[in-house]
Design a binder for these strands. Structure first.
Lengths: 175, 175
DNA sequence: TACCGTAGAGAACGACCGTTCTCCGCCGCA
DNA sequence: TGCGGCGGAGAACGGTCGTTCTCTACGGTA
């Protein structure tokens, strides 16, 4: 197996395991065996666990924003489509809230790189939501509040309906 | 020092350290020395770290809800006072988001007791917000979304102004 | 065939952590 | 004074984890 494939497999596995269990609950050996990559390769691709965590978050940022953008674009850039996308996300098996919020809660105090990636993610999200909001005539910060609130409620409340409630609130704010 | 004082000191210290650094980043020995309690006493009061974590969350729940309720009561049960209280909380030094969200992100996958306490907390909060919302004529779920969203944005965005934006959104929903 | 760089498997290392155990000094009591 | 229980300090234990090292097998090249 060459380096690129090993790195890809590791990132796949890291994204799944870190998100499922939290970073502290996944050892390098768990990753190694789940990804089917030798430990030597692991450290060739990512010199430390922290590097792997940061790479995981960057990749997840790309997937998350990409998926949201694509869905909203398919629905005519309708700002309310954001909440439909959230609804689908919340109902996915294994949904465990925002990976960035979770990682900052776990590692933020000791690992500034994680905080940086999370900040970058949230800034990008808010900037994108700001664009959608401007077109629709709603305050960008209000839209962002509803989105973040829905994620938080779905995560620890276990209430996937949070997306629908947030959609209703957004409709009220639009009118 | 008797058992009760030792337990109280431990809880004080646990609340501070666990919240500041995250649970995994605080060892029993850190707690012991910061609280000035012998290790034997620690395990007399709390048979395991998990017990201490649960006790910490329960205590924080009491403090948090009590402080919010008291503030809102002082301000004539005005639903908007919730956001003023949040604003003050966000600006406290050492603010690091919702202790329950952080703990679930860190331990939720391995420790059901933590998930239970967090659920209990969120249910109590939503029930309280529901009462306030009913009186004011706004949907309880919308109010809860704004509150959760503000906490989340202030936590990882580092934007204490989230409380003010949420207040504005609530005012719009009220009118 | 002889050689060399590389890769994989997994042992080994050092640090840390939750928990338990040992030792010693102190106090009340006969 | 002698004794027995209690508390504190911290050593010790067992396990885990991140990281490095060792050993062996293999494939390409002269």
């Amino acid at each position: 197996m060459d380096v690129d494939e090993a790195a890809a497999r590791l990132l796949d596995t890291a994204e799944r395991l870190f998100y499922e269990r939290g970073v502290h609950n996944v050892g390098m050996d768990d990753l190694r065996s789940a990804a089917g990559v030798s430990l030597k390769r692991v450290y060739q691709c990512f010199p430390s666990k922290e590097d792997l965590v940061v790479a995981y978050l960057r990749r997840r940022h790309g997937w998350w924003m990409g998926s949201l953008r694509a869905y909203v674009a398919e629905h005519g850039q309708d700002v309310l489509a954001v909440f439909d996308w959230l609804d689908r996300w919340f109902r996915e098996p294994g949904f465990r809230g925002c990976a960035f919020v979770n990682s900052v809660g776990e590692l933020g105090a000791t690992c500034p790189a994680v905080v940086d990636v999370a900040l970058e993610h949230k800034r990008a999200l808010r900037s994108y939501l700001g664009e959608l909001a401007d077109r629709a005539g709603i305050a960008g910060s209000h839209l962002a509040l509803l989105v973040e609130g829905a994620i938080s409620m779905a995560a620890v409340g276990g209430e996937p309906s949070a997306a629908q409630h947030a959609r209703q609130a957004a409709e009220e704010l639009l009118s």
